[in-house]
Computed example of a mutant assay.
Amino acid sequence: MKEFIVYTAMRIGLFLASFGIVVGVMALVLDGRYNLFWAIVLAFLISGVASFYVLDRQREAFARRVEARAAKASAAFEQRKAREDED
Score class of each variant (00 low, 15 high):
residue 57 R to N: 09
residue 44 F to A: 07
residue 29 V to M: 04
residue 30 L to F: 05
residue 57 R to E: 08
residue 52 F to S: 01
residue 24 G to C: 10
residue 37 F to W: 15
residue 83 R to G: 12
residue 11 R to K: 11
residue 26 M to F: 08
residue 65 R to I: 09
residue 83 R to H: 12
residue 83 R to K: 13
residue 81 K to I: 09
residue 25 V to R: 01
residue 19 F to D: 01
residue 14 L to C: 07
residue 71 A to S: 13
residue 20 G to Q: 08
residue 34 Y to I: 02
residue 65 R to N: 14
residue 33 R to M: 11
residue 79 Q to D: 15
residue 51 S to D: 15
residue 15 F to K: 01
residue 27 A to D: 05
residue 87 D to Q: 13
residue 34 Y to A: 01
residue 68 A to L: 09
residue 58 Q to W: 06
residue 81 K to W: 11
residue 72 K to S: 08
residue 3 E to D: 05
residue 80 R to Y: 11
residue 69 R to W: 12
residue 67 E to I: 02
residue 13 G to I: 03
residue 30 L to D: 04
residue 25 V to K: 01
residue 9 A to M: 06
residue 40 I to R: 10
residue 39 A to N: 05
residue 61 A to K: 15
residue 56 D to V: 05
residue 63 A to C: 00
residue 29 V to E: 09
residue 5 I to R: 15
residue 79 Q to G: 13
residue 51 S to N: 12
residue 36 L to W: 07
residue 65 R to D: 13
residue 11 R to E: 01
residue 26 M to A: 14
residue 14 L to P: 10
residue 17 A to G: 06
residue 63 A to R: 01
residue 17 A to S: 04
residue 29 V to F: 10
residue 16 L to V: 09
residue 72 K to Q: 12
residue 64 R to E: 13
residue 43 A to R: 11
residue 20 G to R: 09
residue 10 M to V: 14
residue 78 E to F: 14
residue 67 E to W: 01
residue 69 R to M: 05
residue 35 N to P: 10
residue 75 A to C: 04
residue 77 F to S: 06
residue 28 L to K: 11
residue 86 E to T: 01
residue 36 L to H: 15
residue 85 D to Q: 04
residue 34 Y to S: 00
residue 74 S to V: 14
residue 78 E to W: 13
residue 35 N to D: 10
residue 31 D to V: 11
residue 16 L to M: 12
residue 10 M to G: 03
residue 19 F to R: 03
residue 54 V to D: 00
residue 2 K to M: 15
residue 54 V to M: 00
residue 15 F to C: 02
residue 84 E to C: 12
residue 22 V to S: 05
residue 63 A to Y: 11
residue 29 V to C: 04
residue 19 F to W: 04
residue 28 L to W: 13
residue 1 M to F: 06
residue 72 K to D: 14
residue 62 F to C: 03
residue 72 K to M: 10
residue 73 A to L: 08
residue 41 V to D: 03
residue 48 G to Y: 01
residue 45 L to F: 03
residue 69 R to Y: 14
residue 7 Y to T: 08
residue 58 Q to E: 07
residue 50 A to Q: 07
residue 18 S to D: 08
residue 53 Y to R: 07
residue 75 A to Y: 06
residue 63 A to P: 00
residue 17 A to I: 14
residue 32 G to K: 03
residue 31 D to R: 12
residue 10 M to Q: 08
residue 84 E to L: 08
residue 79 Q to V: 14
residue 27 A to I: 03
residue 60 E to C: 11
residue 4 F to N: 00
residue 52 F to M: 01
residue 31 D to G: 09
residue 82 A to E: 03
residue 21 I to L: 02
residue 85 D to C: 02
residue 70 A to E: 07
residue 54 V to R: 04
residue 45 L to N: 00
residue 5 I to T: 05
residue 6 V to G: 02
residue 23 V to I: 13
